[in-house]
Simulated assay, not measured.
Amino acid sequence: MSFQAPHPSSFISPEVLAVIRDNAPEAEGLGQLHPAQLALVYQQQWFKLLVPKAYGGLETSLPDLVRLQEAISWADGSFGWVITLCCGAGWFGGFMEPVVAQQIYSTPGLCLAGSGAVSGTAELIDGYYKLNGTWKYASGAYHATHFTANCLIKENGETVSGPDGEPLVLPFIIDRKDVSLLPTWKYIGMIATGSHSFEMQDVVIRANRSFHIDAGYAKVDTKLYQYPFLQLAEATLAVNLSGMALHFVDLCKDVFEERIKLPKLTDGQRTLLRELLQSTTDELQFTRDGLFKAVDVSWEKPLNNCANELRAVTKTSRQLAITSRSAVDKLYPYCGLIAAAPDTEINRVWRDIHTAGQHALLTFVE
């Protein structure tokens, strides 16, 4: 029997879907998740999807995670992106010193936002670090209780080298009170993610607030924290795009049905719309099947003998991202002006996927 990934509606209840979608327009107006959406996140513990069980998290397996994240993104792109990025930062709990992790993950309303860019420095001074810098694109910044940031390590004004001889870069976790938000998120889509910049000026923290994102440094001895970060990130971001693309396809079905009824259309044009919708749906399904199967196989194999399977996750993730963008672009020209009206759901999905699709991990197949 051939493998076929279920539609995202299999992984999210109608009641939960309604809360997300009904409040999505207002969330866009607010520039952040709506309070009703946020209440749902806390109820479902979605910010803790990748937090270790030892610290009260769900420690979700990667196969289960990508299916749920696609479903959440299918509900709404901005909402799904915030969940993905903020729960992704929760994964770092597997690498933090336990005393720090216990403190961080017991925070009421926990939400971690941050940036993977190395756009700041950390000066080592007597067992403490002094942090300075500005970091872009911290999705969910308004909801964050903590921020993570990558810093170039310095000591006595000089750049510190790591074991490989390259400049040492470490991620840090910082309390919200030590961070200043900068209102820089001004793009056409993903508006409700509130992916603003943040800065720190001479913030002094203990050295144990830094950690290494590497399986050899994992403090929690379970498979989730041995799985490579690159493939975890690629797969989870890709299913955000496929979720948005499937949402767009669903909306196109209704639009196309109405257009097919127009007397001015020829039989050939009606056939074109039907066949285009079907072929686009089939192509998206085929590519989704490839990604989910690759993730499942890589998760089941021992990670010390999984190089080919991990490469397959990378390849299928990027293929899915490209196919998702392509699917939307193929259908959009046949949707009429309703797809160009910024106050419509279909236009919001179009704007979201074309904004999220600019992520550097999702641009090239190779």
Rank of each mutant, 00 (worst) to 15 (best):
Ser73Cys: 10
Gly94Thr: 02
Val66Gly: 09
Gly77Ile: 04
Thr60Gly: 03
Ala75Asn: 01
Gly56Pro: 00
Trp91Lys: 10
Phe95Tyr: 15
Trp74His: 15
Thr60Ala: 12
Cys87Asp: 14
Lys53Thr: 09
Ala54Lys: 08
Val99Thr: 15
Pro52Lys: 00
Ile72Met: 15
Leu58Ala: 11
Phe79Trp: 09
Trp81Tyr: 14
Asp76Gly: 11
Ser78Phe: 02
Leu85Ser: 03
Gly94His: 02
Ala54Ser: 09
Gly80Glu: 01
Val66Asn: 07
Gly94Tyr: 04
Val100Gln: 10
Ser61Trp: 12
Leu85Ala: 10
Thr60Trp: 01
Trp74Gln: 12
Phe79Thr: 13
Pro52Tyr: 06
Ser61His: 14
Ala54Glu: 15
Cys87Phe: 11
Gln69Asp: 09
Tyr55Leu: 10
Leu65His: 05
Phe92Arg: 14
Glu97Arg: 09
Val66Ala: 09
Gly88Val: 08
Leu65Phe: 02
Val82Gly: 02
Ile83Ser: 01
Ala75Cys: 13
Trp91Cys: 08
Leu65Thr: 05
Gln69Ile: 04
Cys87Tyr: 08
Glu59Trp: 05
Lys53Ser: 08
Gly94Asn: 05
Gly88Ala: 07
Gly57His: 04
Leu62Pro: 11
Gly77Asp: 12
Cys86Leu: 05
Pro98Gln: 05
Gln69Trp: 10
Leu65Ile: 03
Phe92Lys: 08
Met96Lys: 11
Phe79Tyr: 05
Trp81Arg: 15
Pro98Val: 04
Leu58Ser: 10
Pro98Gly: 06
Thr84Val: 14
Ala89Asn: 06
Trp74Ile: 03
Leu68Thr: 09
Val99Trp: 13
Leu58Asn: 12
Ile72Lys: 08
Gly90Pro: 05
